[in-house]
C-alpha cells in the first residue's frame, strides 16, 4: 500500500455560502498517488485541512462510480476534467503530471447558484423534470410488459438518451449555460417510446417552459455539451426536442401547453 509521490498545486474556489462572495485559495496537494481518483486526492487535502483546524473544501459527491451525477467540478477549463466520457469521481490522478497547477471551480450558471465552495444547487433540473419528465401512469398497470413490443433500435436509442445522470456538465460546458441537452434527453427518451406518445407534445412544451423559467441560456449548437457529457448524450436529442416543440406549438391543434400529468 503505497502513498504516491505526485505534488500538485490546487487553486480552489472557496465560498462560504450563496450570499457571501467567494475567492480562489491555493493549496498544496502532496504525496498524491496516480491511482487515486480526483476526489480521493481532495479527501487527502481535506484530511490535512481538518487536522490544521481549517474547514475542508466542500464538494458534492456520492456514489463515486460515475452514475449518481452528484460530483460536479470544473477542472482546468473542463467540466469533470480533461478526459472524455467520465465524471469527476472517475478521473484519476494519473491524468495529471507531477507539479501541475490545477484550477477547480464550481459549475457556473445563474440557474445553478453556489451552495458552498464547489457545490451548486441543481434543483432547477428537478423542477424541469417535475414539469413533465414522466409518463402519467399510476402504479398497478395490468398490461403485460411484452404487449408493448418496441423495435430494438428504438429501445437502444431511447436508452442512449435515458443514460443522462443529471450532473449538469452540459450546462457547465456550454458558453451560454444552456440546459437543452439535459432537457432534450428526457424529451427524446419518452418521445421515442410508445409509452411516451400520449403526452409527447404536451411534455415537451411543459419542460421547455420550465427550462426557460429557470434562466438557462439558449443553445447555439456549439457542441460543447455533447463533447463534455460523461454519458455521451448526443446533440441530436436537442434537434428532436426542437422538432417536437415546433410541431406542438405550430401545427398540432390538440397539444396544449398545460401538462397536468393527469390525475
Amino acid at each position: 500500500m503505497s502513498t504516491g509521490n505526485m505534488n500538485l498545486t490546487l487553486k480552489v474556489w472557496r465560498q462560504k455560502n450563496a450570499n457571501i462572495k467567494g475567492a480562489f485559495v491555493t493549496y498544496k496537494a502532496e504525496g498524491i498517488s496516480p491511482d487515486m481518483s480526483f476526489l480521493e486526492m481532495l479527501d487527502v487535502v481535506n484530511e490535512s485541512l481538518i487536522h490544521k483546524g481549517e474547514e475542508p473544501i466542500h464538494f458534492d459527491h456520492d456514489c463515486r462510480e460515475g452514475i449518481c451525477g452528484m460530483c460536479s467540478l470544473y477542472i482546468n477549463g473542463h467540466p469533470h476534467g480533461p478526459k472524455n466520457a467520465i465524471t469527476t469521481c472517475q478521473l484519476h490522478m494519473r491524468t495529471f503530471h507531477d507539479g501541475e497547477i490545477i484550477v477547480i471551480e464550481p459549475w457556473r450558471a445563474a440557474a445553478f447558484p453556489v451552495v458552498k465552495d464547489l457545490a451548486v444547487d441543481r434543483s432547477a433540473f428537478d423542477r424541469i423534470q417535475q414539469a413533465g419528465g414522466f409518463v402519467s401512469v399510476n402504479t398497478g398497470v395490468t398490461v403485460d410488459a411484452n404487449e408493448i413490443p418496441i423495435p430494438k433500435v428504438i429501445a437502444d436509442e431511447a436508452f442512449n438518451s435515458a443514460t443522462c445522470i443529471g450532473c449538469g456538465a452540459c450546462v457547465a460546458a456550454c458558453k451560454n449555460a444552456s440546459a437543452m441537452l439535459f432537457v432534450s434527453a428526457k424529451v427524446t427518451q419518452l418521445g421515442m417510446l410508445p409509452q411516451g406518445q400520449p403526452e409527447r407534445y404536451s411534455r415537451v412544451q411543459a419542460m421547455v417552459a420550465q427550462m426557460d423559467a429557470e434562466g438557462f441560456g439558449n443553445c447555439t449548437n456549439t457542441g460543447a455539451c455533447e463533447a463534455e457529457c460523461p454519458k455521451e448524450i448526443k446533440m441530436t436529442n436537442i434537434s428532436r426536442m426542437n422538432n417536437d416543440y415546433f410541431s406542438a406549438k405550430l401545427f398540432r391543434e390538440e397539444a396544449t401547453h398545460d401538462h397536468a400529468g393527469g390525475e
Partner: peptide, 17 residues
C-alpha cells in the same frame, strides 16, 4: 445568454467546440 452565467470561469473554457 450572458445573463445565464453571471459569474464567469476563471479558466478558459477548453470544451471542444
Amino acid at each position: 445568454n450572458r445573463k445565464s452565467r453571471p459569474v464567469s470561469y476563471a479558466t478558459v473554457n477548453k470544451s471542444p467546440a
